[in-house]
Amino acid sequence: MKVLVTGGAGFIGSHVVNKLIRQGCRVTVADNLSTGSVNNLNQAAAFVQMDIRNPEILQLFESERFDAIVHLAAQTMVPKSLENPVYDSDVNIAGTLQILEAARKTGVKRVVFSSTAAVYGNTAAVPVREETALQPASFYGLSKWAVERYLALYQELYGLEYVVLRYANVYGERQGDFGEGGVISIFVRNICGGRPVTIFGDGGQTRDFVYAGDVAAANWLALGTTAKNSIYNIGTQTESSVNLLVEELAVISGKTVEKQYKSVREGDIYRSSLCNEKAVENLHWSPQTLLRDGLARTYASLTGVEHGCAT
């Protein structure tokens, strides 16, 4: 299978690329390197440095004739979407439309799209199911929801298959400070530097932390599933508080951690956990990595040591 991975030099994208190559796919990565890094690239993948908003991306599609697209390239920061909703829309909606039009014009069979738990917003029903009414509390969540609707209409009008994966908070090796799971790398860096960690709110807010390797497996399964043209939550179905996250990192690092609490950030939701029953049943996917094990791997990758902090 010939697959284009947009954002494949990024944190999650690099895990997906590695998984697809291990499964025998011929992978091309398109990434503008705004948040990704050439150091994340798998040497077995072809690489094109290009922004998804560039109309010339059609030429890449015409020359390569991809079978499928895994679309991860996006603006993923909730605060940035609130500060600059025009930019958020330009990347996440207009950029995706460049991809969808190129896919339509060149006979791509399927698009696997990386969406987010942010489409749900604040909801009392946790864990959240796919059929829950969507009430995004940020322009980031809204832009991802808009793309989901575009995909459904492209399928109806043009027959372009899609699978939407709504990620919980993804973490793992090669993680930066960006996106929904970036708090982990920020916490690790502060802990290793002997600095306090900043918690916005009371620390009781929960997130569903899912390991990047498990997310990569979901993308691989989405490429081949017969349960297509559907939406799946990709999470652990477990709520973990920010306070618990700090405690786990303290155990892993062997450090005493000072916590500083600040006001809640606009657009942040309080409770988040995704019901994954639909993915388990239809994609035959389930998370394989326990939080402490995944955090230990992430910690080691960020600090360069298995135990104790890097000097």
Rank of each mutant, 00 (worst) to 15 (best):
Q59V: 12
T6Q: 05
K19G: 02
Q23Y: 05
R53V: 05
I12F: 04
Q49G: 04
V38T: 13
P85H: 05
D31K: 10
N39K: 13
L72H: 04
L58Y: 02
I52H: 02
L33A: 03
V70T: 02
E83K: 14
F61M: 04
V5Q: 02
E56I: 00
I57G: 01
V29L: 08
V16T: 00
A68Q: 08
D67Q: 08
H71A: 01
D31C: 09
A46C: 13
E64K: 01
G8S: 11
C25F: 15
I69W: 09
C25R: 15
G24R: 14
S34A: 13
V86E: 12
A74C: 10
C25H: 15
A30M: 15
A30H: 05
L20N: 06
I52L: 12
P79M: 00
D67R: 02
E62H: 03
I69Y: 07
L82Y: 01
P55M: 04
V29Q: 07
L72K: 08
A46E: 15
F61T: 04
V16L: 11
Q23T: 06
K19R: 15
V70R: 14
S14K: 00
N32M: 09
K19A: 06
Q59L: 14
E56F: 13
T6L: 07
C25M: 14
L72M: 11
L41M: 11
P55T: 10
G36I: 06
S14N: 04
V16H: 08
F11G: 00
N39C: 13
G13E: 03
M77V: 12
G7L: 09
A45N: 10
E56W: 14
N42C: 10
S63E: 14
I52R: 09
Q59W: 12
Q49P: 03
N84F: 03
T76K: 04
S81E: 00
L33N: 04
R53Y: 01
Q59F: 11
M77G: 09
N39V: 09
F66V: 09
I57F: 06
G7E: 04
D67N: 11
P85S: 07
G36P: 05
V5N: 01
D88R: 06
Q43L: 09
G8F: 01
V3P: 02
L60Q: 01
